[in-house]
Structures are given as C-alpha cells and as structure tokens.
Design a protein around this nucleic acid. Structure first.
Lengths: 243, 243
DNA sequence: GAGTGGTCTAGACCACTCA
DNA sequence: GAGTGGTCTAGACCACTCA
C-alpha cells in the first residue's frame, strides 16, 4: 500500500487523479500503454474501487485516458490532424475529406521575436527554430503556416529533409525529438490578408483570411510549439454547441 | 415506487437520466426550480442513491442541472449573453466588458425563405417574423443581426415596442411568448462584407466580417429562432482548448 | 477461465444551508 | 437540527476480451 502525498484536505479521488496525472506528465507510461487495473490501484492506495473509478473518470473526461471494457484503461494518443478539420473544410473534388499535402518552404534557426517568446514562455532572443510551410490541396495552396519551436529541444529537425517525412509534424516531433504534443490552445481571428501571405496563398489583395494561433504543450504543460496559420476564409467554417 | 418506462436494456442510471430530461423538456419544472432530492428519487424509482447520482451527474455535465451542496439540485437557466462574448471582444474605452445596446430597425411578418425554413425545420413560405437589429457600443454599430422566428409562437412580439424592452431578446421571448431558449448551435464563417451589411456597420467595401448563424432550441429540441449576425472581424477573437 | 472495466447496491459519515 | 448534496466503502454481479 502506498500513500497519496498530495494535500490531504482534498478528496481522495482528487488526490489519486492528481497523482496519476503527474505520472502521465512524467512519461511513466507512453500513449497506448495501459495504467494498472482499477483493483490494483485500489489495493495499492488503500481505496475502494468506487473511489478509484471516480479518479479515472475525471481523467477520461479530460481526454487523457481511454477505457476499453474488458481490456484496460489506456493513455490516449491525441489526434491532432482532426483539429484542422474542426476549423477548415478541406474536401477533394469528390467531396471526401483529405489531409492537405505539406510543402516545407524553409526551416532555420533564429532568435525568438517577442510574440513568439511570449507564446513559448522563453526569453526574447532565445534560440528557436522557424519553419514556414504551405498546405496544399490538389496542388492549390490552402493554408500558410509559420511554426516556431524552442531550439534546444528540436535540433534534430535541422538535420533531416522534412519534405520526405509525410504531411504531419507531430509524429515527426515524437520520432526525432522525443517530444509529445498532448494539448493545445488555439485562438481564432479574421482579417484582411497581408501581402506576404496573400502571395503565398495566391489570394487577391485584402482578401479575408482566418488566422489561427496555436500553442501546443506536452503532458506536463510545457510549451512545445507556437504556430500561426493563415487560411482563405472561404474554406473556413466552425460549429459550436452551446447550453 | 414508480417504474422507469424506457428501454430496459439500457442501464438504470441512463433510464433515469432520460426520464428526467423528458420531464424537463416538458416543463415540469422551470429554470431555478429544484428537482426532488436524491433520496426521494431513489425511493420513488427503487434505485440506490449512487445510481441516482450517476443520472444527475450526466445532466449536470450536459449543463441542464446545477447542484448546490446543502440546498438541492436546480434547473439551470442558460446564460446566453455570454455566448456573444465567446466570439466577440466588446470592450468599453475603460477596457470593461459591456453588453452592446440594441436598436431594432424593423420587425415584420414574412413568408419563410428557404434557408430560414430549413434552419427552423418548417415549410418554406410558412409564416415567420423577421427582426433586423443593430448592436451598438458607445453609439457605434458593432453587430448587425437578422432574426427569424416561427410566426405562430411569437405573435405577441408584433404588438409591443421592442426598443423599450432592454438589450436581450431571450428574456423577452420568455416573458411575452412563454418560449424558453435552452440550447443553441452556432456556425462561424468569415467573408468580405456585402453592401447592405457594410452600410449598416459603417464598414468600407469588402471589409472582412465574421458571420455567425445560430439555431436556438427549447428544452425539447424544438427550433425557436434562427439568427444570422455580422460583425467586424477586428472585434472577433475566439479561443479553444484541444486535447 | 482469468482478467478487465461497467453497473448497482445499501449503507456510513461529512460539509453545507437554512429556519 | 432537519434536510440537502459530497465522499467513500465493500462488496455483488454483468459484459467484454483474450489466450
């Protein structure tokens, strides 16, 4: 039997939730791994199974864990390509949804501009890596992105040809740099396109575009990537349910 | 003791959730009313309190009910003015958040255009009421709205001066027509402003605007209002968290 | 058939509210 | 102090998975 070290004034299911969340943040398990069965956690921490279930329920509701009846409870692998589809409707001529192709225009080490440093929570001027890329659908540009990464974590990216690695960056971060994106915050705005991005996206002057700024974090909440994406407003559609 | 009539193959907490949701949809209680205590529900339906709690938990998670420890569990009154602030940043010169003023430009009975009929789930050409209004901040227009209501439910609106009734419509729907908005779906798009709305909002030609289409429903899921709002993109900012 | 999560019970005791 | 929801227990039995 183990003790839950956290604040004893909190409910025990809360303490267990926090304990598990901390272990997950510290990579005790990898995505796809099972956490111990509920009965094992109950006896380890001297709790009833009902209390353990309440702790696990909370992490399931947060999207961190995933139950599979009869199999176990697993660390969830975030599915970020779906986030693009949350905002933009990219469809092939057939009406089918497709992941846009990726074309890396540049990747270079730079000093962090103020807005990037603030996003990533680092010192202005610290070493960062800046990637500029286009997303294309049937050879037509649909999204222009600038992607900023803390330099010391992502050095390996500078030594490969990203254009040979498939359209999604997060699996590359994991494979090459061991960095796992677990959550993100996105901020949406709309504006008239500036000349640089208008040119990249082949849009007329002052055409309306949607801008998405994303801050991606690992399980511990540490910022891993700050990204700004520009897309033609025509492709953009977003739906919310409110109560 | 009462029986839960629903599908007996469903878990009992699910059956109770559905039963309560149906009663709420049928206005057995009004917003602010308490549902029976958990112990009373348990004995009425011959369930343990734990099972009742699970049913109530589900409705709390859906935003339909609200618990208050020591007091009871209450029907939640939806707070829709906050929905505006979800998308648009309206701030007074002081930086304080304010509810924009409302100016009704017109209200008239019409036949439903196709897009409106589809939104409201009625026949094209059926009787509807169309309201056009401006929302203003410090006398400057910030939002232009067209609001479509099923005619037979909202006749009383035609007999009052809406401009004397405060800036929020939903309390007026409730007070004058007995119709209670419980949930809504909103779809966000961005485009260059058309001349009509550009004029209303005092914007230059083809200025980028954000368009929000909202379908509001009562507790039973019946469509009550279809609305399209236009706002200058400059005021617009929306934030999402993703896992 | 052993092991997993899913549902459900019948309580106990606590924290909070309100007359 | 009576009544409410909040936490927690120590089980039982079920549904599903997998060797």
């Amino acid at each position: 039997m183990n003790a839950l070290s956290a604040d004893a004034r909190l409910p025990r299911y809360q303490q267990l939730r926090d304990h598990l969340a901390e272990q997950i943040a510290n990579n005790r398990w990898r995505p796809g791994d099972a956490i111990p069965p509920e009965a094992a956690l109950a006896s380890e921490f001297d709790l009833s199974v009902g209390t353990v279930r309440k702790a696990v329920d909370a992490l399931v509701a947060e999207g961190v864990l995933e139950r599979q009846q009869g199999r176990g409870t697993f660390i969830r692998r975030p599915q970020f390509q779906s986030s693009l589809f949350r905002f933009f409707r990219f469809e092939a001529a057939t009406g089918e949804r497709v992941v846009p192709q990726s074309r890396i225009l540049s990747i270079e080490p730079l000093s962090a501009p103020a807005v990037v440093a603030q996003g990533l929570g680092i010192e202005p001027g610290a070493g960062v890596i800046c990637i500029v890329r286009l997303r294309l659908l049937e050879a037509k540009p649909v999204l222009a992105e600038e992607i900023w990464l803390p330099g010391q974590l992502f050095q390996p990216l500078l030594e490969v040809d990203l254009n040979t690695q498939g359209p999604l960056l997060y699996p590359i971060y994991e494979a090459l740099c061991g960095q796992l994106v677990a959550s993100a915050e996105e901020t949406l705005t709309a504006e008239a396109v500036d000349p640089t991005h208008g040119h990249l996206l082949q849009l007329p002057d002052a055409c309306p575009v949607v801008v998405i700024e994303r801050l991606a974090r690992d399980y511990a909440g540490k910022p891993l990537e700050w990204r700004r994406s520009y897309g033609h407003a025509q492709h953009f559609r977003y739906r919310v349910d409110i109560r």
